[in-house]
């Protein structure tokens, strides 16, 4: 049970973050393009293609409605990919973590560094999309700057959830289950593509416990220049998922590696 002892966090996690940042910097341009291209294709494809056939959604052109959802979904995806595939490469394939652990870093430092890094990378993704949708004229007030810390918190929540899966994964193939069973339903049921009140009542209850729906509930009004409702509830859920999932991820990773 001692694997689930309180995380002991330290600034040494920053060394891990810096290592990952240095690798990213070498591949920054293709990585940024990759991060932007996919959500943009969805946003323009669905936004104009499907949106052309739709009346206003919640009083907005469909593409403006979709923009905030895309921002949140792409934050989730960026954090998830980093915490699954990239972290798994470093932990299991390249044995980068083993090198870190032979240096004066603890496993807690390493996992915390990966957590912060994945959240940072997702923030980059979210920020890039915010810049693009601002340039397209979908952002209506400086309130939208509040989106940035929310994106980081959303990144922390999904990075931590991803690290749980990472700690349990025997191989890359395992991640498909997580995408199919968690990430894809999350994207469809969190108000990214359509308002939650379109869902049958039973499913709507489920949607309200999904962390992505709380991110969307905060980000969409901010992008449209309105103050969101129930701010503390939404922030509390995201923060609770971030901290709780990180704790579990760390415990499972300790169980996996410290034997």
């Amino acid at each position: 049970m001692s694997h689930f002892a309180i995380p002991s966090l330290s600034l040494r996690a920053i060394a891990v973050w810096r290592r990952n940042f240095l690798v990213w910097r070498k591949l920054a341009i293709p990585s940024m393009l990759g991060n932007l291209a996919d959500p943009m294709i969805y946003m323009f494809g669905l936004g104009y293609g499907l949106g052309g056939m739709l009346p206003a959604v919640n009083g907005l052109p469909y593409i403006a409605f979709l923009a905030a959802g895309t921002l949140c979904a792409s934050t989730m995806n960026a954090a998830t990919f980093e915490a699954l595939y990239s972290a798994f490469s470093r932990m299991h394939v390249q044995k980068t973590w083993e090198a870190l652990l032979n240096a004066p870093l603890s496993l807690d430092d390493v996992v915390a560094g990966e957590w912060l890094w994945a959240a940072s990378k997702s923030m980059l993704s979210g920020t890039a999309i915010l810049v693009v949708i601002t340039a397209l004229g979908f952002v209506h007030s400086p309130l939208a700057l509040w989106v940035l810390p929310i994106v980081f918190l959303t990144g922390l929540a999904f990075a931590a959830m991803g690290l749980i899966v990472n700690a349990l994964a025997p191989s890359y193939d395992f991640f498909m289950y997580y995408f199919t069973l968690v990430i894809t339903p999350m994207m469809l049921l969190s108000g990214v593509f359509f308002p939650l009140d379109q869902l049958p009542a039973a499913v709507r209850g489920l949607a309200h416990i999904l962390p992505l729906s709380h991110a969307v509930a905060l980000v969409r009004p901010l992008v449209n220049g309105e103050a969101p409702a129930n701010v503390l509830l939404h922030l509390g859920v995201l923060a609770g998922v971030a901290v709780g999932a990180f704790w579990i991820a760390l415990g499972l990773t300790r169980r996996r590696l410290l034997r």
Partner: peptide, 19 residues
Amino acid sequence: NLDPDFTVAENLLVYARYF
């Protein structure tokens, strides 16, 4: 478990940062 994405010198530099 050297870092395949880094050069020879970067491998030493980054590892030293851990200390």
